[in-house]
Each structure stands twice: as C-alpha cells, then as structure tokens.
C-alpha cells in the first residue's frame, strides 16, 4: 500500500502550491501516471479519500492521464510499446531495453481558487 504514501505526497504538493498561490483550495487536479509506475489505481482510490480528508484537496475533482509504456532497444534502437518490464525487442529480441515512457508519476496541473 505505498499508494497511501503517494496520495499523501500529492496532498503535500497541492498544499504547497495553494499556499504559494495565495489560494484557498484545489478545484481540480490532473495527475500523470505511467502504466509501469507501479501504482495500482484501485489502491490509490482507496487511499485517496483518507489522504485528502480535511486537506486542500478535500473537494477537488481528480483526473488521471495514463501514459502507456514505451521502450527503446539498446541494441538496435527500435522504439516499441511495452506492457511489462520483461518484454524484449520485437525486432531483434534483445532483452536489453531502456524505458522511455511509462514510469511517470507527476502532478501535471492544479486548478485552484
């Protein structure tokens, strides 16, 4: 359940942003979560309601942009979509790949007032 730590980190980021902006609370939050980021969305949902209680995110709507996994082969430079870390290159079958997308875990934007 590291999703609880993640949800609490998001609350911290939102609180800092609200304070810096001299606003009162967050209306809407946009997150970017890569498919290989190691986040279970049902677990994040479960942790979310507890983490945001009495915080600047308590009444915020949440939007999650899912970023599909993409890797580049270190042997032949082919880029290809991946669903899991163990997938090898479809062109040359090399298991040596670099993940270029899918590990994202970001707060993209906040709408505050």
């Amino acid at each position: 359940m590291h999703e609880l730590s993640i949800a609490m980190s998001i609350v911290d980021i939102a609180r800092d942003a609200v304070e810096k902006a001299g606003a009162r609370e967050v209306e809407h939050i946009e997150l970017e979560i890569g498919q290989l980021a190691g986040i279970e969305l049902p677990a994040l949902d479960f942790a979310w309601s507890e983490a945001v209680r009495d915080s600047v995110l308590a009444r915020a709507t949440r939007e999650i942009r899912h970023i599909p996994g993409e890797a580049r082969c270190m042997e032949c430079q082919t880029t290809f979509p991946i669903q899991a870390l163990y997938e090898s290159c479809p062109t040359c079958s090399s298991p040596f790949t670099d993940i270029i997308h899918g590990k994202e875990l970001r707060v993209h934007a906040l709408t505050v007032h």
Partner: peptide
C-alpha cells in the same frame, strides 16, 4: 486559475 506544476510526486 490553473497552475501547471509538472512536479514529480
């Protein structure tokens, strides 16, 4: 207003 953060969680 919208604040664009792009901050790593």
């Amino acid at each position: 207003r919208v604040i664009t953060l792009e901050q790593d969680i």
